[in-house]
């Protein structure tokens, strides 16, 4: 039962968009997510492997539809909910 992140050798993802984007972030919220990730990890709220595990455990369709930093945000939310730091649904509109 390999997870959806384990894509080495999987067919069907098509051609690579080789355009060389040089901007580190495409929106300000992406930078905030990276900042929050590094801060929380630095404080020992979660470790990097727990974070990876949370990304990989996303439902496959959701994982594939999400942008790179959307996955990061999802993982942070899931871990904080699991650890009781925030309530489930607390970030929803």
């Amino acid at each position: 039962m390999a997870r959806i992140n384990d894509v080495g050798g999987t067919q069907g993802f098509g051609a690579i968009d080789t355009s060389d984007d040089t901007e580190p972030f495409h929106a300000d919220w992406e930078a905030r997510v990276v900042g929050l990730f590094n801060t929380l990890r630095g404080q020992g709220v979660f470790n990097t492997n727990e974070f990876r595990d949370a990304i990989e455990s996303m439902p496959p369709a959701e994982y594939l539809a999400a942008s790179y930093y959307e996955r990061w945000f999802t993982a942070i939310r899931v871990l904080l909910e699991r650890k009781g730091v925030i309530e489930p649904g607390e970030l929803d509109d």
Binding site: M1, A2, D6, G8, G9, N49, R52, D53, E56
Partner: peptide, 13 residues
């Protein structure tokens, strides 16, 4: 093996 958890041994290997 095919563990039901995080691992760094990709399925192709």
């Amino acid at each position: 093996h095919d563990p039901p958890h995080h691992t760094r041994l990709p399925r192709y290997a």
